[in-house]
Protein backbone atom coordinates (compact mmCIF):
# COMPACT_ATOMS: atom_id res chain seq x y z
CA UNK A 1 0.00 0.00 0.00
CA UNK A 2 2.60 2.57 1.08
CA UNK A 3 4.97 1.54 -1.67
CA UNK A 4 2.42 1.60 -4.46
CA UNK A 5 2.92 4.19 -7.17
CA UNK A 6 -0.72 5.15 -6.82
CA UNK A 7 -0.17 6.27 -3.22
CA UNK A 8 2.79 8.37 -4.35
CA UNK A 9 0.71 9.82 -7.17
CA UNK A 10 -2.09 10.72 -4.77
CA UNK A 11 0.40 12.34 -2.40
CA UNK A 12 1.78 14.43 -5.28
CA UNK A 13 -1.65 15.71 -6.28
CA UNK A 14 -2.54 16.30 -2.62
CA UNK A 15 0.53 18.51 -2.15
CA UNK A 16 -0.29 20.30 -5.41
CA UNK A 17 -3.86 20.73 -4.21
CA UNK A 18 -2.71 22.43 -1.01
CA UNK A 19 -0.30 24.60 -2.97
CA UNK A 20 -3.09 25.74 -5.26
CA UNK A 21 -5.58 26.46 -2.45
CA UNK A 22 -3.04 28.30 -0.26
CA UNK A 23 -0.12 29.44 -2.41
CA UNK A 24 -2.36 29.96 -5.43
CA UNK A 25 -4.50 32.42 -3.51
CA UNK A 26 -1.36 34.40 -2.58
CA UNK A 27 -0.67 34.90 -6.30
CA UNK A 28 -4.30 35.87 -6.72
CA UNK A 29 -3.79 38.48 -4.02
CA UNK A 30 -1.04 39.98 -6.13
CA UNK A 31 -3.38 40.10 -9.11
CA UNK A 32 -5.92 42.09 -7.11
CA UNK A 33 -3.14 44.36 -5.92
CA UNK A 34 -2.37 45.09 -9.57
CA UNK A 35 -6.04 45.64 -10.37
CA UNK A 36 -6.78 47.65 -7.23
CA UNK A 37 -8.94 50.61 -8.20
CA UNK A 38 -11.69 52.97 -7.16
CA UNK A 39 -11.96 55.11 -4.02
CA UNK A 40 -10.66 52.31 -1.79
CA UNK A 41 -7.51 51.42 -3.77
CA UNK A 42 -5.18 51.80 -0.80
CA UNK A 43 -7.46 49.86 1.56
CA UNK A 44 -7.69 47.05 -0.95
CA UNK A 45 -3.92 46.83 -1.15
CA UNK A 46 -3.48 47.01 2.61
CA UNK A 47 -5.98 44.21 3.14
CA UNK A 48 -4.19 42.01 0.63
CA UNK A 49 -0.79 42.65 2.19
CA UNK A 50 -2.20 42.04 5.65
CA UNK A 51 -3.81 38.81 4.49
CA UNK A 52 -0.82 37.19 2.84
CA UNK A 53 2.06 38.68 4.89
CA UNK A 54 2.26 36.13 7.70
CA UNK A 55 1.42 33.03 5.66
CA UNK A 56 2.87 33.28 2.16
CA UNK A 57 6.20 31.74 3.02
CA UNK A 58 4.58 28.72 4.66
CA UNK A 59 2.12 28.38 1.75
CA UNK A 60 5.01 28.52 -0.68
CA UNK A 61 6.64 25.44 0.86
CA UNK A 62 3.91 23.25 -0.67
CA UNK A 63 5.51 23.85 -4.06
CA UNK A 64 8.82 22.54 -2.76
CA UNK A 65 6.99 19.52 -1.36
CA UNK A 66 5.55 18.84 -4.83
CA UNK A 67 9.02 19.02 -6.39
CA UNK A 68 10.59 16.80 -3.75
CA UNK A 69 7.84 14.18 -3.90
CA UNK A 70 8.13 14.12 -7.69
CA UNK A 71 11.87 13.57 -7.78
CA UNK A 72 11.82 10.94 -5.06
CA UNK A 73 8.81 8.99 -6.29
CA UNK A 74 8.98 9.43 -10.07
CA UNK A 75 12.58 10.35 -10.89
CA UNK A 76 12.51 9.65 -14.64
CA UNK A 77 9.35 11.71 -15.02
CA UNK A 78 10.88 14.52 -12.95
CA UNK A 79 14.02 14.48 -15.09
CA UNK A 80 11.85 14.50 -18.22
CA UNK A 81 9.78 17.47 -17.00
CA UNK A 82 12.87 19.40 -15.93
CA UNK A 83 14.52 18.75 -19.31
CA UNK A 84 11.61 19.39 -21.63
CA UNK A 85 10.11 22.34 -19.74
CA UNK A 86 13.37 24.02 -18.79
CA UNK A 87 12.33 27.34 -20.30
CA UNK A 88 8.88 27.86 -18.76
CA UNK A 89 10.04 26.48 -15.41
CA UNK A 90 13.01 28.86 -15.33
CA UNK A 91 10.70 31.76 -16.22
CA UNK A 92 8.31 30.68 -13.46
CA UNK A 93 11.25 30.59 -11.04
CA UNK A 94 12.15 34.17 -11.94
CA UNK A 95 8.54 35.08 -11.20
CA UNK A 96 8.63 33.25 -7.87
CA UNK A 97 11.84 34.98 -6.84
CA UNK A 98 10.65 38.45 -7.86
CA UNK A 99 7.23 38.01 -6.30
CA UNK A 100 8.58 36.96 -2.90
CA UNK A 101 11.44 39.44 -2.76
CA UNK A 102 9.38 42.37 -3.97
CA UNK A 103 6.65 41.64 -1.42
CA UNK A 104 9.21 41.68 1.38
CA UNK A 105 10.97 44.75 -0.01
CA UNK A 106 7.67 46.59 -0.07
CA UNK A 107 6.98 45.64 3.55
CA UNK A 108 10.36 46.90 4.75
CA UNK A 109 10.86 49.81 2.36
CA UNK A 110 11.03 53.00 4.43
CA UNK A 111 9.86 55.27 1.63
CA UNK A 112 6.14 54.48 1.49
CA UNK A 113 5.61 56.09 -1.88
CA UNK A 114 8.54 54.31 -3.49
CA UNK A 115 7.49 51.08 -1.78
CA UNK A 116 4.26 50.97 -3.71
CA UNK A 117 5.48 52.48 -6.98
CA UNK A 118 8.43 50.15 -7.33
CA UNK A 119 8.07 47.02 -5.19
CA UNK A 120 4.30 46.87 -5.09
CA UNK A 121 4.21 47.00 -8.87
CA UNK A 122 6.87 44.33 -9.22
CA UNK A 123 5.13 42.08 -6.68
CA UNK A 124 1.84 42.44 -8.52
CA UNK A 125 3.21 41.82 -12.01
CA UNK A 126 5.19 38.78 -10.89
CA UNK A 127 2.03 37.47 -9.19
CA UNK A 128 0.23 37.80 -12.49
CA UNK A 129 2.82 36.11 -14.68
CA UNK A 130 3.94 33.23 -12.47
CA UNK A 131 0.59 31.38 -12.33
CA UNK A 132 0.33 31.57 -16.12
CA UNK A 133 3.77 29.95 -16.47
CA UNK A 134 2.94 27.26 -13.93
CA UNK A 135 -0.28 26.58 -15.81
CA UNK A 136 1.59 26.47 -19.12
CA UNK A 137 3.82 23.78 -17.63
CA UNK A 138 0.86 21.72 -16.49
CA UNK A 139 -0.77 22.15 -19.87
CA UNK A 140 2.32 20.88 -21.66
CA UNK A 141 2.29 17.69 -19.55
CA UNK A 142 -1.07 16.75 -21.03
CA UNK A 143 -0.35 17.76 -24.59
CA UNK A 144 1.42 14.54 -25.63
CA UNK A 145 4.08 16.63 -27.37
CA UNK A 146 6.86 15.86 -24.86
CA UNK A 147 8.49 12.80 -26.42
CA UNK A 148 11.37 10.75 -25.11
CA UNK A 149 13.16 7.81 -26.70
CA UNK A 150 14.48 6.20 -23.55
CA UNK A 151 16.29 9.05 -21.85
CA UNK A 152 16.85 10.96 -25.10
CA UNK A 153 14.67 14.04 -25.41
CA UNK A 154 13.12 13.80 -28.85
CA UNK A 155 11.24 17.08 -29.09
CA UNK A 156 12.09 20.78 -29.08
CA UNK A 157 12.58 23.03 -26.08
CA UNK A 158 9.80 25.38 -27.14
CA UNK A 159 7.28 23.56 -29.30
CA UNK A 160 5.90 21.47 -26.42
CA UNK A 161 4.64 24.40 -24.39
CA UNK A 162 4.34 27.35 -26.79
CA UNK A 163 0.88 26.20 -27.73
CA UNK A 164 -2.60 27.64 -27.63
CA UNK A 165 -3.72 24.92 -25.24
CA UNK A 166 -0.87 25.46 -22.74
CA UNK A 167 -1.51 29.17 -22.58
CA UNK A 168 -5.24 28.65 -22.14
CA UNK A 169 -4.42 26.36 -19.18
CA UNK A 170 -2.09 29.09 -17.89
CA UNK A 171 -4.84 31.70 -18.07
CA UNK A 172 -7.27 29.23 -16.50
CA UNK A 173 -4.85 28.80 -13.56
CA UNK A 174 -4.58 32.57 -13.26
CA UNK A 175 -8.36 32.96 -13.22
CA UNK A 176 -8.73 30.24 -10.58
CA UNK A 177 -6.07 31.78 -8.33
CA UNK A 178 -7.62 35.23 -8.68
CA UNK A 179 -11.05 33.78 -7.93
CA UNK A 180 -9.83 32.02 -4.78
CA UNK A 181 -8.06 35.14 -3.58
CA UNK A 182 -11.07 37.41 -4.09
CA UNK A 183 -13.31 34.98 -2.24
CA UNK A 184 -10.88 34.70 0.68
CA UNK A 185 -10.49 38.48 0.72
CA UNK A 186 -14.22 39.02 1.25
CA UNK A 187 -13.65 37.46 4.68
CA UNK A 188 -10.46 39.43 5.32
CA UNK A 189 -12.51 42.60 4.75
CA UNK A 190 -15.39 41.47 6.97
CA UNK A 191 -15.22 44.61 9.17
CA UNK A 192 -15.52 46.97 6.23
CA UNK A 193 -18.71 46.41 4.20
CA UNK A 194 -17.63 48.67 1.32
CA UNK A 195 -14.34 46.90 0.96
CA UNK A 196 -16.01 43.55 1.31
CA UNK A 197 -18.26 44.46 -1.54
CA UNK A 198 -15.26 45.46 -3.68
CA UNK A 199 -13.86 41.97 -3.26
CA UNK A 200 -17.28 40.38 -3.74
CA UNK A 201 -17.61 42.06 -7.13
CA UNK A 202 -14.11 40.98 -8.06
CA UNK A 203 -14.86 37.42 -6.96
CA UNK A 204 -17.99 37.34 -9.10
CA UNK A 205 -16.10 38.65 -12.11
CA UNK A 206 -13.39 36.06 -11.54
CA UNK A 207 -16.04 33.35 -11.24
CA UNK A 208 -17.27 34.26 -14.71
CA UNK A 209 -13.70 34.30 -15.99
CA UNK A 210 -13.01 30.80 -14.60
CA UNK A 211 -16.17 29.53 -16.30
CA UNK A 212 -15.14 31.02 -19.64
CA UNK A 213 -11.59 29.70 -19.32
CA UNK A 214 -12.81 26.24 -18.33
CA UNK A 215 -14.88 26.10 -21.49
CA UNK A 216 -12.01 27.42 -23.63
CA UNK A 217 -9.57 24.85 -22.24
CA UNK A 218 -12.09 22.09 -22.78
CA UNK A 219 -12.68 23.09 -26.40
CA UNK A 220 -8.97 23.54 -27.18
CA UNK A 221 -8.25 20.13 -25.62
CA UNK A 222 -10.22 18.45 -28.41
CA UNK A 223 -7.45 19.29 -30.85
CA UNK A 224 -4.36 19.88 -28.67
CA UNK A 225 -4.75 17.47 -25.77
CA UNK A 226 -7.10 14.68 -26.84
CA UNK A 227 -5.98 12.58 -23.90
CA UNK A 228 -7.40 15.04 -21.39
CA UNK A 229 -10.55 15.41 -23.38
CA UNK A 230 -11.07 11.65 -23.45
CA UNK A 231 -10.26 11.43 -19.75
CA UNK A 232 -12.80 14.12 -18.98
CA UNK A 233 -15.56 12.48 -21.00
CA UNK A 234 -15.13 8.74 -21.18
CA UNK A 235 -14.19 7.49 -17.75
CA UNK A 236 -16.61 6.04 -15.19
CA UNK A 237 -15.92 8.97 -12.88
CA UNK A 238 -16.20 11.59 -15.63
CA UNK A 239 -19.79 12.72 -15.34
CA UNK A 240 -20.13 12.61 -11.54
CA UNK A 241 -16.97 14.73 -11.35
CA UNK A 242 -18.09 17.25 -13.96
CA UNK A 243 -21.44 17.47 -12.22
CA UNK A 244 -19.89 17.99 -8.78
CA UNK A 245 -17.57 20.68 -10.17
CA UNK A 246 -20.47 22.48 -11.85
CA UNK A 247 -22.56 22.33 -8.70
CA UNK A 248 -19.81 23.73 -6.50
CA UNK A 249 -18.95 26.44 -9.05
CA UNK A 250 -22.55 27.52 -9.34
CA UNK A 251 -22.98 27.25 -5.58
CA UNK A 252 -19.92 29.42 -4.95
CA UNK A 253 -21.22 32.10 -7.31
CA UNK A 254 -24.65 31.97 -5.69
CA UNK A 255 -23.16 32.18 -2.19
CA UNK A 256 -21.15 35.24 -3.26
CA UNK A 257 -24.19 36.81 -4.82
CA UNK A 258 -26.21 36.31 -1.65
CA UNK A 259 -23.28 37.33 0.57
CA UNK A 260 -22.82 34.00 2.30
CA UNK A 261 -19.07 34.47 2.35
CA UNK A 262 -18.11 31.59 4.63
CA UNK A 263 -20.05 29.21 2.43
CA UNK A 264 -18.59 30.80 -0.70
CA UNK A 265 -15.09 30.11 0.59
CA UNK A 266 -15.86 26.43 1.19
CA UNK A 267 -17.49 26.02 -2.21
CA UNK A 268 -14.75 27.91 -4.05
CA UNK A 269 -12.10 25.72 -2.47
CA UNK A 270 -14.17 22.65 -3.36
CA UNK A 271 -14.53 23.84 -6.94
CA UNK A 272 -10.81 24.39 -7.42
CA UNK A 273 -10.01 21.09 -5.72
CA UNK A 274 -12.42 19.21 -7.99
CA UNK A 275 -10.94 20.85 -11.08
CA UNK A 276 -7.45 19.82 -10.02
CA UNK A 277 -8.43 16.23 -9.26
CA UNK A 278 -10.47 16.14 -12.45
CA UNK A 279 -7.31 17.04 -14.36
CA UNK A 280 -5.29 14.46 -12.43
CA UNK A 281 -7.84 11.71 -13.10
CA UNK A 282 -8.11 12.64 -16.76
CA UNK A 283 -4.34 12.50 -17.00
CA UNK A 284 -4.14 9.15 -15.15
CA UNK A 285 -2.10 6.95 -15.58
CA UNK A 286 0.26 9.40 -17.34
CA UNK A 287 2.64 11.78 -15.59
CA UNK A 288 4.04 13.10 -18.84
CA UNK A 289 1.89 11.90 -21.70
CA UNK A 290 2.51 9.62 -23.50
CA UNK A 291 5.93 8.28 -22.44
CA UNK A 292 5.91 8.44 -18.64
CA UNK A 293 3.27 6.73 -16.55
CA UNK A 294 3.05 6.27 -12.79
CA UNK A 295 4.05 2.64 -13.26
CA UNK A 296 7.00 3.02 -15.64
CA UNK A 297 8.65 5.87 -13.77
CA UNK A 298 8.19 4.84 -10.16
CA UNK A 299 11.14 4.72 -7.77
CA UNK A 300 12.21 1.52 -5.97
CA UNK A 301 9.63 0.29 -3.44
CA UNK A 302 11.78 1.16 -0.45
CA UNK A 303 12.06 4.82 -1.54
CA UNK A 304 8.30 5.07 -2.03
CA UNK A 305 7.60 3.50 1.37
CA UNK A 306 10.04 5.77 3.18
CA UNK A 307 8.66 8.80 1.36
CA UNK A 308 5.11 7.96 2.44
CA UNK A 309 6.30 7.39 6.01
CA UNK A 310 8.29 10.64 6.03
CA UNK A 311 5.28 12.57 4.74
CA UNK A 312 3.05 10.92 7.34
CA UNK A 313 5.43 11.58 10.21
CA UNK A 314 6.12 15.11 8.95
CA UNK A 315 2.40 15.83 8.80
CA UNK A 316 2.07 14.95 12.48
CA UNK A 317 4.33 17.92 13.23
CA UNK A 318 3.16 20.06 10.37
CA UNK A 319 -0.60 19.92 10.78
CA UNK A 320 -0.73 21.23 14.39
CA UNK A 321 1.79 23.93 13.43
CA UNK A 322 -0.23 24.97 10.38
CA UNK A 323 -3.42 24.91 12.44
CA UNK A 324 -1.75 27.20 14.97
CA UNK A 325 -0.57 29.57 12.22
CA UNK A 326 -4.00 29.90 10.67
CA UNK A 327 -5.72 30.14 14.06
CA UNK A 328 -3.46 33.03 15.09
CA UNK A 329 -3.92 35.00 11.88
CA UNK A 330 -7.20 33.82 10.42
CA UNK A 331 -8.98 32.53 13.53
CA UNK A 332 -11.51 35.34 13.68
CA UNK A 333 -12.74 34.54 10.20
CA UNK A 334 -13.83 31.13 11.40
CA UNK A 335 -15.12 32.21 14.79
CA UNK A 336 -17.61 34.74 13.51
CA UNK A 337 -20.19 34.57 10.82
CA UNK A 338 -20.05 37.32 8.30
CA UNK A 339 -22.44 39.25 6.18
CA UNK A 340 -25.92 40.51 6.91
CA UNK A 341 -27.34 37.07 7.63
CA UNK A 342 -24.66 36.52 10.29
CA UNK A 343 -25.17 34.81 13.67
Amino acid sequence: MLESELTAGILTVLALNLYVLLGGADYGGGVWDLLASGPRTQRQRDTIAHAIGPIWEANHVWLIVVVVVLFIAFPPAFAAIATALHVPLTLALLGIVLRGSAFTFRTYEFNRDLAQRRWGRMFAIASLITPVLLGVTVGALSSGRIRFLGTYFAAGFFETWLTRYSFLVGLFALALFAFLAAVYLTLEARDDPELQDDFRKRALAAAVATGVMALAVFLAAGEDAPLIRRGLLNRPWSWPLVLATTVSATGAAWALWSRRFQLARVLAAAQVTLILWGWALAQYPYLVAPDFTLANSKAPAVSLRLLALALLAGSLILMPALYYLFRVFKGEQFARRSGPRGA
Binding site: V61, I64, V65, V68, V69, F71, I72, A73, P75, P76, F78, A79, A82, T151, A299, P300, S303, L306, L307, A310, L311, G314, I317, L318
Partner: peptide, 17 residues
Protein backbone atom coordinates in the same frame (compact mmCIF):
# COMPACT_ATOMS: atom_id res chain seq x y z
CA UNK B 1 18.34 13.57 -10.23
CA UNK B 2 17.01 10.64 -12.25
CA UNK B 3 19.47 8.38 -10.46
CA UNK B 4 19.97 10.20 -7.17
CA UNK B 5 16.37 11.28 -6.45
CA UNK B 6 15.07 8.03 -4.95
CA UNK B 7 18.33 7.32 -3.12
CA UNK B 8 18.96 10.68 -1.51
CA UNK B 9 15.36 11.91 -1.31
CA UNK B 10 14.98 11.19 2.42
CA UNK B 11 16.88 14.22 3.72
CA UNK B 12 15.15 16.41 1.12
CA UNK B 13 11.69 15.35 2.25
CA UNK B 14 12.63 15.83 5.91
CA UNK B 15 14.17 19.18 5.03
CA UNK B 16 10.83 20.11 3.49
CA UNK B 17 9.14 19.68 6.85
Amino acid sequence: MRHAGPIIGMPFSLEGF
